[in-house]
Amino acid sequence: MKNRLKVLRAERDWSQQDLAHRLDVSRQSVNAIETGKYDPSLPLAFRIADVFGLAIEAIFLRD
């Protein structure tokens, strides 16, 4: 699944570690999601949406 994590992070000047800290996950997890190697569960997707203050569909895109 495609996503806009990298762009959204860049807009806020957050590193992967910064985002990982906000989500209480590892930096590896953020990297795997960002590069499309791992699709997060629905609860984690909601947490990501909450951190960015956006709807899930504004972050994750259909292939």
Binding site: V25, S26, Q28, S29, P40
Partner: peptide, 8 residues
């Protein structure tokens, strides 16, 4: 492990 990616 609470980190779902690491758990996977």
């Amino acid at each position: 492990t609470t980190d779902e990616f690491l758990r996977m």
